[in-house]
Design a binder for these strands. Structure first.
Length: 305
DNA sequence: ATTTGGTGTTGTG
DNA sequence: CACAACACCAAAT
C-alpha cells in the first residue's frame, strides 16, 4: 500500500513547516570548528567573523538567526560549566517516572516520539517486503538524510559538507544491506519539517520511530529517548541504569550506532567530566547541536515545550 | 598530562 | 570459537 496515503494516519496532520533552509550551517560550522580550536585564547568576535569571511555585524546576525543566541552565549553553551549544568540530573532522568516501553512515548519534554523495536531477526524475516524510502533535506546542521519505512522513521544521518551525499547514503545502507531502497524526497520532506522546526515538536500526534538493532542497542537507545532538552547524561550513568555499571564502553559503542541521530538524542551523552566526546557524524556537529539546543531551551519557545 | 588495564557488545573469519 | 575494535573510565605514572 502506498506510503503517501498513510501520511495523515502516521502523524502528518499538520501543514509542512516552512522549508528548512539553512545554508547558514556551512559558515556556522567553520565558526564552531574555529572556536573549538581557539577557545583557550578567548578569540574576539571580529577574529571569528574574519575567519568565516564576514564582518562583525553580519556574523552576529548570521549566528543569531541560526542559533537564536549570540556567539558569546553559544561559546558559553560549549563550556564544561554548561555541561555540568546539563548533567545535574544525569542519573535520575534515565529512570524517569514515565515508561518508555514498546510503543511508549519518549522525549516527553520536547519532540513527541513513539517508537517500536525491530530486532535483526524480525528485520530479516520481514525484510523482503520492507522498503526504505529516503530523501535528502537541508537542516540546521547541514544536509540530512532521512529514511522511512511503512512503520515509521528508521534513519536520520548527516552529510559531510565536502564529501557530499554518497558516503552518508552508503553508511546507512550498509546497516541494513537486505532492504530495498528508493529515493523519494516528497515522502521524507514532512519528516524534516516536523523534526527540525521546534514549533512542530509538540504536534499532538507523535512522530513514529522504528528502531532496528540488537536487543542491547535498543535498550540503550530507549534510554536516550528519556533525556529531555536541557539535560544530558554520561556513558557511565547510562550503563549503570541498565544494571551493567562496568559496560560504559559497550554503551558508547551502542550509542555510536544509533541510526536515528538527533531524534534519538545521542548528542546528549557526554563523558564523565562533561567533555564532548565522539560523534559518528563529526564532533563539530555534536557541538553545533548542543549549542543550537541551548538556544531553543532559552527561547520563548520554552513555554510551549 | 599521559599511559595502562579492565571492561561488554558486536562484527569478522 | 577466538579476536579485534570501540563515541569509557579509574587508577597509576
Amino acid at each position: 500500500m502506498p506510503l503517501q496515503t498513510n501520511l495523515a494516519e502516521r502523524g502528518f496532520d499538520f501543514m509542512p513547516a516552512m522549508p528548512v533552509i539553512d545554508d547558514d550551517y556551512a559558515q556556522v560550522r567553520r565558526a564552531i570548528s574555529y572556536l573549538i580550536d581557539h577557545w583557550r585564547d578567548q578569540p574576539s568576535l571580529s577574529a571569528v567573523a574574519a575567519h568565516v569571511g564576514l564582518n562583525e555585524t553580519r556574523f552576529q546576525k548570521l549566528f543569531k538567526r541560526w542559533a537564536g543566541i549570540s556567539p558569546k552565549e553559544f561559546v558559553q553553551a560549549l563550556t564544561i560549566d554548561h555541561a555540568r549544568h546539563l548533567l545535574r540530573d544525569s542519573v535520575s532522568v534515565l529512570d524517569a517516572a514515565y515508561e518508555v516501553g514498546l510503543s511508549g512515548p519518549g522525549r516527553l519534554h520536547d519532540l513527541f516520539v513513539t517508537h517500536e523495536a525491530m530486532t535483526p531477526g524480525e528485520f530479516k524475516a520481514g525484510g523482503a517486503e520492507l522498503e526504505i524510502i529516503y530523501g535528502f533535506h537541508a537542516c540546521p546542521f547541514g544536509e540530512a538524510l532521512i529514511m522511512t519505512t511503512s512503520r515509521g522513521l528508521s534513519g536520520l544521518a548527516f552529510c559531510d559538507d565536502v564529501r557530499g551525499r554518497a558516503p552518508t547514503l552508503a553508511d546507512m545502507i550498509r546497516r541494513w544491506p537486505n532492504a530495498s531502497y528508493r529515493e523519494d524526497a516528497v515522502v521524507t520532506a514532512p519528516y524534516a519539517g516536523r523534526i527540525f522546526d521546534p514549533l512542530n515538536w509538540r504536534n499532538e500526534t507523535p512522530l513514529r520511530v522504528v528502531m532496528i538493532g540488537t536487543d542491547f542497542e535498543i535498550s540503550v537507545w530507549e534510554k536516550l529517548l528519556k533525556i529531555p532538552l536541557g539535560a544530558a547524561t554520561t556513558y557511565g550513568d547510562l550503563a549503570a541504569s541498565l544494571g551493567k555499571p562496568k559496560a560504559a564502553r559497550a554503551v558508547g559503542s551502542a550509542v555510536g550506532r544509533n541510526p536515528v541521530s538527533f531524534v534519538v538524542p545521542c548528542h546528549r551523552v557526554l563523558g564523565k567530566t562533561g567533555a564532548v566526546t565522539g560523534y559518528h557524524w563529526g564532533v563539530t556537529r555534536k557541538h553545533a547541536i548542543i549549542g543550537w539546543e541551548a538556544g531553543v531551551a532559552g527561547s520563548a519557545l520554552q513555554d510551549i515545550l
